[in-house]
Every structure is written in structure tokens, then in C-alpha cells.
Nucleic acid binder design. Structure first.
Lengths: 188, 188
DNA sequence: ATGCGTCGCGACGCTACCGTAGCGTCGTAA
DNA sequence: TTACGACGCTACGGTAGCGTCGCGACGCAT
């Protein structure tokens, strides 16, 4: 019986270490050191660095985002973007996510896992919002949900994760307004 | 006198190695091995891995993008996006750029260099296109060029560098149309 | 209470990389 | 042709991480 307290301490240590050094430089020894346990504690739980990262990352990335109907496309978009923004603002997330996305270009396993999770989430959220807007008559019925999702997430990710500009309520409102117009204009 | 043929071989090897292994795992030995020279050849030219990467990256990222006036905002945007897309489609670039952006979150020197280059280029291109559109009466005079640039680059980067979806002429045309609408709607 | 099983811990050999120093070589100028 | 200067190459000690193995301790069921 593995002691669960150590398992969760290792999960936390992995996340912190991942943020501090990145996947490339990540070492099992450092994770164990940070968690205050020995390396064997890790090898008994995960066969490799990759498996460990995949398990922890899918657990975190798999969390669903609740999206109540606000009554308008702009409101739905603003709410969704606010949720994503607060997720991306976490210092750990804002360092780990770009790092893993970069590593995904090189490592097929990470790429497949992340892509599946990301596109699935994006498709679910985007599809839901777009479907509601079509129902309200705000969007034409042939609107592409995929393209809409890209138009929403793209600028937000670019600002927060790449440029690391601050992004307050006002900016998010502007981005949501712009995204609504972009979807209406281009996603069909 | 350093032999320039070796210097450029080292630059090429650095870029390839950077794409293959990432900045974190990048080793001087591997670069030298790939270039077919010894480590000292590198240490005579650059004092550290960081300096070497910064020099090569700024040299590549500093290239200007020519933007002739096409007569319309949508046309200008489509042209600019096509240029960026072809740059991002190069396998080397599409692996190195996300990697360095992720590393930038952790390494202030890389971050400062990249951010300066990126925001400068984005501001130049975005400002130029927006200014023309304002002159034509396509956009209100208080349009924010920065926000406009984010709305253009964001979805493109997201699609090409993060999701790695194919992005042909038709998709780019759609994105340009959407970006034009987004700028008109939200960037003021 | 006691014996058994399971776990965490420290240590080990191994490999890769770092940054440097001395040596041999090649091009060049007198 | 010869002597000089600058270069690249091999070799080195030192460090850090990998994955494994045997030991000791602790918990649990009887």
C-alpha cells in the first residue's frame, strides 16, 4: 500500500518543479528532493518521467469548465474568457502550459494527450456557446464551432501566456466583444 | 580570425539542435557534434549557451516583414497573416518559437529579448496596417493598434504553433475576415 | 505480542556534460 | 623557405542525474 500523503506530495512537487525548470530539465531527483522523499518513492509509483507528467497533467487539464447561459453570445464569451484567464493567470499554469505545448511538438505522447484534452475541451465549450447563439438567432446555423473556439482562445492565450500582458476585466470585455464580431463575420 | 564557415555551421547546428531537443536540454557538446567541430570552437565564439542562443535568435527574429498596401484592411491582414503563416510553418521555427517563449517565462534575458522583438515587430506591422485603414475610413481613428495586433496574431499562432492544425489559403482568408471584423468591433 | 510483508532510505556504478589546458597543425607574411 | 601566430582537437577532473539493490523500520493481521 503506497502512502497517499507521499503520492500527493510528489504530485505537488512535480508541478512546482515543472514550473521552475521545465519538462526538458526536469529531473526525478529534483522532484524527490522537493517532496522530501527518496527517488525510489517515485519509481514505485510511476515507471518514467513521462508517465508521471502525463498522469498529473491530464488530471489537472481534464477539469471541466462550467458555463451557465448568460443570455447573449457576448456574455457567454466574456464568462468563458474570464474563466480561462483566471486559469492562465495562475503562475504555475502560465509556466507549465507553454512549456508542455512546446514539448508536445517534439514528444508525440505529450502531444497526443494535450491535443486531445485541449481540442475536446475547446470543442465542448465552443460548441455549447455557439449552439446557444444559433438558437438565439445571433449566429447563422452554419457557424463553425472550431474556428470560433480558435478566435476566442487565440488572442487570450497570446496575450496572457505569450506576451504576458496584464489582462483585466476591461480588456477581457473588449476581447469578448471582438471575438463575438469575429465569429459572426468569419466562422461560416 | 575565426573561420566564418565554421561559425555559420555552428549557427545552423544550434538552430537544428534547438528544434530537436529544446533550450532546456540543449547541450554545447551536441551542437559541436552536429556541426562536426569541437567544443572549443564554440567557447571561442560565445561565452555561454545563453549568449549564443540570443545572438542567433535575434538575428533570425529581427527580419522585417514587407507589407505593400493592398487597398483594403482585409487584404492587408490576409497578406500579413500569410507571411506569418509561412514563417510559422517552417518546421524549425514552429518548434523553436514555442520552446523559447516557454523558456522566456523563466529566463529574464530570453524573455526581454523576445518580448522586445515581438512587440516591436507586432507594433510596427499592426500600427502600419491600422493607420492605413484609418486613413481609408475603414476603422475609427481611436483604434488600438496593440489590441488589433493581438487579434490578428493570436488565432494564427494558436492554430499553427499550438494546435498545429493545417492552415491553408482558405482558412487564412477566413481568419483575416474575422480579424478585420474583430478589430472594427473591439479595438477602440 | 510477534512475525511477516511492504515500504522508504542511502549507496552504487554508469553515463553525459561542463569548462579548461596543453598540444599539434595550418595559413600567412617576410 | 621559414618562422610566427592563431586556430581546432584530444584529454582531463569535476558534477549531476539515472535506474537499481540491499538494508532497516514500520504497520498490520493473527
Amino acid at each position: 500500500m503506497l502512502r497517499s500523503e507521499i503520492t500527493s506530495a510528489l504530485r505537488d512537487a512535480l508541478v512546482e518543479e515543472l514550473a521552475a525548470t521545465g519538462y526538458g530539465r526536469l529531473s526525478i531527483e529534483a522532484v524527490a528532493r522537493r517532496a522530501g522523499v527518496a527517488k525510489t518513492a517515485i519509481y514505485r509509483r510511476w515507471p518514467s518521467k513521462l508517465e508521471m507528467v502525463l498522469e498529473v497533467v491530464t488530471a489537472i487539464a481534464g477539469q471541466r469548465l462550467e458555463l451557465p447561459d448568460t443570455g447573449s453570445l457576448r456574455g457567454d464569451l466574456e464568462l468563458a474568457m474570464r474563466g480561462m484567464a483566471s486559469a492562465l493567470r495562475h503562475p504555475l499554469a502560465s509556466q507549465i502550459i507553454p512549456d508542455l505545448l512546446a514539448e508536445a511538438a517534439r514528444n508525440p505522447d505529450i502531444g497526443a494527450t494535450l491535443q486531445q484534452t485541449l481540442t475536446e475541451t475547446g470543442r465542448t465549450v465552443g460548441g455549447q456557446v455557439v449552439e446557444r447563439a444559433i438558437g438565439r438567432g445571433e449566429l447563422p446555423p452554419d457557424t463553425h464551432a472550431d474556428l470560433a473556439a480558435d478566435l476566442v482562445i487565440g488572442p487570450l492565450y497570446w496575450r496572457l501566456a505569450v506576451l504576458r500582458k496584464p489582462c483585466g476585466k476591461a480588456e477581457i470585455r473588449g476581447l469578448a466583444q471582438a471575438a463575438a464580431a469575429a465569429i459572426a463575420a468569419g466562422a461560416h
